[in-house]
Design a protein around this nucleic acid. Structure first.
Lengths: 361, 361
DNA sequence: ACTTAGCACTCGGAGAATGAGAGTGCTAAC
DNA sequence: GTTAGCACTCTCATTCTCCGAGTGCTAAGT
């Protein structure tokens, strides 16, 4: 008699969808009135009682309607919902928001990701969050030291992924031309062509040792290099649309504020490995900051490797059937776009071609 | 009989301070019980009635205590309050938060300003906001074009103020060595040494014309230069601690969200010229976004010129006597620090010294 | 002329009482 | 296995009442 049949599942789905839409606990009469349900309210009541016993539904108080439990949401997301499909025109709109298709090319990865975050936040009215650790998989394609003003030198570091970092260092003394070119050459020789993931702490320490042994006064420069190194290894976290969270009645304002302040704690949750789309509920994890929240994340890849995670954070009462396809589409699109770029750049070996002209123009 | 005497002012000050502290309308009995007031509640009542008629106080409803009006706050701020003074230890703490004093030197202006904003937000529990237009007063000290990967070129632009901007451009074709050095040379020649404020639209257009006449394929690079130019002219707006605003009961949540989205509208208000510290009340200006808010701003200078504004935005019910000294201190400190830096760099004429060694090391 | 005690009055807000309505579980009939 | 009917429960919105803080005014005191 505790058998869960087709109809009970239909009722569960209906409860989730209705609750997501209205935010009100759902009663048996409501469900019975739906066209796809052909039984009376009393029957629905019986079924709902079973669903409650099985832990998929719960009642806020004795005489209110039912509300889905976390388990209920999970079942719904995994088995019951039918994700909205994105018609062609919708996709075009999304592409437009990403900023692609405009002139068909030359978008920096960074901008792409930034646009995706903004778009996702806007579309879902949630906080959108992206963790990008792609620099770890790219190669340092260029390191330069550029004198600029008295005793000030800028270290410029460019990776194959297209990210450009710089750092200004002020020295005690000016470098002679030889010193500068020696240092610059040393860096090029030891760092260019190295993939960021190979940049171990040891390597950096060797570098540091070699440098400081050579001369003390370089130390701000060495420190600068070290800071750039740290920057590269760090997972960049980008979050937009936090403001939307404040409009949800069922999220605690204080917890939102805490979340805004401690986003970093998310990184581990977003970045540990999984495939496809993952939904995490706030109540489940005690390290998660917002109580009644849920987070939907997906990975994006580059050359077959996961190089970042993107997703949204919103209330549990979220239109998953709508939001999940967005996230799926964006992560796929980003994967396509950045993999394509990396294909392009693989065609060349030498990072800086200045031989003869390849092409007249 | 409508004369406003010493005692009435004292009462006004007391009302403001009490109201700021508690958020509750202040009654006559409360005021009379203060040690510095030596009259009975009835007398206080009479005085308060006068203050109300003069527009300094108002009653939320007939039988509640009094609350300061904007005019009341203004009088308090301008004439009545005694700003907290910052003892030596407090200043040290502030310096520490700014990040100075650590190693005594080499802080980028940008970092300094960033730290100031964070510190101000933390200290005042308000949204701290800084508008920096110093780049407009600095000189372009270096422009470089760096090839990096196939068909990708990075334009690097450094100003005397120490800000470093870069932009990657993807071309249709690779440049020959000559083309590259010609372009690079052209940029150096026409832009280096120019102060940003001289960079008029005409100048940029001439540049564009000269370039495109020379060859079409450079156009992404020219566009890149143009974008950097725009970046430089823009007032950079930095805002931190918006979250604090949500904890004030008397600010409307929706208005805060609007504010977060439309900060730019502030720029004009912050940046129009005034001297000293300016306090603006939200109710006063219809273009100001948050109703019951107040904004306290001050300028900071560099070489005698105003190059930025910093301040906080919070509820009207704000401890001005505490907050204003913070802002005054920070704006003064920033002025000192960045002027000092600019002094240092003025000592040299040539931006990039690579003659002989000036000093053995 | 200013200050103060006293008093009647006002008004907001907290708390209790009330009633309507939505929803339930159970039972008995279909 | 389904459904109608019914008694029951519990929340929420409304209304009412009443307390108390605070006021303005008057009249007396300094």
């Amino acid at each position: 008699m505790m058998r869960i049949n087709e109809r009970k599942l239909k009722i569960l789905a209906a409860v989730v969808e209705f609750y997501v839409r209205t935010g009100e606990p759902v009663g048996s009469k409501m469900i019975a009135s739906l066209p796809e349900i052909h039984v009376s309210a009393a029957t629905v009541r019986n079924d709902m009682a079973v669903l409650e016993q099985l832990g998929y539904l719960e009642q806020p108080h004795t005489s209110a309607g039912r509300v889905p439990t976390i388990q209920g949401y999970r079942l719904y997301i995994e088995k019951l919902m039918s994700p909205a499909d994105l018609p062609e025109e919708e996709r075009e709109r999304l592409d437009h928001m990403l900023g692609v298709n405009e002139n068909g090319n030359q978008m920096s990865e960074e901008l792409l990701i930034q646009n995706a975050t903004t778009a996702l936040a806007e579309l879902t009215k949630c906080a959108a969050v992206v963790s990008d650790f792609s620099p770890q998989f790219s190669v340092i394609s260029k390191v330069e030291v550029i004198p600029t003003g008295k005793r000030v030198y800028v270290i410029l570091l460019i990776t194959s992924g297209g990210s450009i970092k710089n750092k200004a260092c002020r020295l005690e003394f000016d470098l002679t031309r030889e010193q500068l070119s020696w240092f610059s050459g040393y860096l090029s020789e030891h760092l260019e062509g190295i993939s960021v993931s190979e940049l171990s702490d040891e390597l950096m320490e060797n570098l540091t040792a070699a440098m400081t042994a050579y001369m003390m006064s370089l130390s701000p420069l060495v420190q600068g290099v070290f800071e750039l190194y740290r920057d590269l290894r760090q997972h960049a976290l980008l979050c937009k649309g936090e403001k939307h969270l404040f409009s949800y009645e069922d999220l605690d304002k204080m917890e939102i504020v805490r979340f805004i302040e401690h986003k970093d704690e998310l990184i581990q949750l977003m970045d540990d490995s999984f495939s496809g789309i993952r939904v995490v509920f706030g109540k489940d994890r005690e390290n998660f900051v917002i109580g009644n929240s849920s987070m939907i994340v997906s990975k994006y890849r580059k050359g077959g490797k996961n190089v970042g995670s993107l997703g949204v954070i919103g209330p549990m009462r979220l239109d998953y059937a709508k939001v999940i396809p967005y996230i799926a589409y964006f992560s796929q699109k980003i994967t396509d776009l950045i993999s394509e770029q990396s294909e392009q750049s693989k065609q060349t070996r030498e990072p800086c071609p200045d031989e003869e002209d390849q092409k007249k123009f």
